[in-house]
């Protein structure tokens, strides 16, 4: 019998985590894009966490110590980004809005991640009638206009508008319905590919149960492109949430601050020269989407060795 060796297990360090690895292996413009995106996203996350300390008023506050807030007040010392037609403080609502946006995106993406990946794995690995039905359903969801679907789902769940958590939840579910098929398709395609790999066949030859093969061999090897879909879907879900709010199917203004709703209310203001009610929530949406998209796009490029730029570049030859 050979001696028992203490297995020097090679733990993968924190530098191998997806985003960290990407920062370390990037260079030039790609690195700049990635870092700009990360700074934007982290900044907004920080604002969301610190909203109670940063915002002078609460999201639904319409009066202060000196009585009710003025309506349509231009930016001033009291209300640095002005107030809305309803008398809300724009600065406070924009800051609180980051919480709503991030919470919704987090819930929507994690729900679609779990369901999409799970269904994709099972569908791709076992195949058969279940696979065919799921693929058909995914195609059917694709065929619907995404926003229309989100509106229908949110009406079904909340019956229109509702409380803070109920509103966020229904928006998140409505958004995740759109994204489940995306995760499903990618993971199913990867599963089909991994399923044919010799190491899966090797496991079959020595009689490993199928559920164990799925867990141990297939799942771990199909997660490669998931970080990229997460970031790209996150950007889209911010826009979907804003669109829902804009169209009046989002969260009640007294329940939470939501940029889409604020934009909707600001539409009438533009013609009368009141710019501050629309510009700030609008810019907030743009910045968050920009940040997430920058991260997503540069992750895609850096992950692909053919697109990745390296620090020492050789002379170009035709």
């Amino acid at each position: 019998m050979a001696t028992v060796v203490q297995e020097p297990r090679q733990r993968r360090g924190w530098t191998d985590l997806p985003v960290v690895w990407h920062v370390r292996h990037s260079a030039g413009l790609q690195r700049g894009m990635l870092i700009a995106g990360l700074v934007l996203v982290l900044g907004i996350v920080l604002v969301a966490v610190l909203a109670p300390f940063l915002a002078p008023y609460s999201h639904a506050q319409m009066s202060g110590a000196a009585g009710p807030f003025p309506r349509h007040a231009p930016p001033s010392g009291e209300h640095i980004w002005g107030t809305t037609v309803g008398g809300y403080d724009v600065f406070s609502r924009t800051l609180w809005g980051t919480r709503t946006a991030l919470l919704t995106v987090l819930m929507a993406v994690s729900a679609s991640l779990v369901l999409g990946v799970g269904l994709g794995l099972v569908s791709g690995f076992f195949g058969g009638p279940l696979d065919r039905v799921l693929v058909m359903l995914a195609d059917a969801v694709y065929a619907f206009p995404a926003l229309l679907l989100a509106i229908v789902v949110s009406i079904v769940i909340s019956g229109g508008q509702s409380s803070y958590f109920g509103g966020v939840l229904s928006a998140a579910i409505a958004i995740s319905v759109i994204f489940i098929p995306q995760f499903f398709r990618v993971v199913r395609a990867e599963t089909l590919q991994v399923k044919a790999e010799p190491f899966v066949e090797a496991a079959r030859v020595f009689g490993m149960p199928r559920t164990r093969i799925l867990r141990r061999h297939v799942l771990r090897n199909t997660t490669r492109s998931i970080p990229l879909i997460i970031t790209l879907n996150a950007a889209e879900s911010i826009l979907t949430l804003a669109a829902l709010g804009f169209l009046g199917f989002g969260i009640d203004p007294t329940a939470a601050a939501e940029w889409g709703y604020d934009l909707n209310r600001a539409v009438a203001d533009t013609s009368s020269g009141i710019w501050w009610t629309g510009v700030f929530p609008g810019s907030a949406i743009v910045l968050l989407v920009l940040g997430v998209t920058l991260v997503g796009e540069s992750l895609t490029d850096i992950s692909d060795p053919r697109l990745r730029r390296r620090r020492h570049r050789g002379r170009k030859k035709a």
Binding site: E7, Q10, P198, F199, R216, H217, R220, N221
Partner: peptide, 10 residues
């Protein structure tokens, strides 16, 4: 390709 790239040889 006959080994799972995510598992150690052991």
């Amino acid at each position: 390709t006959s080994f799972n790239p995510k598992l150690s040889i052991g």
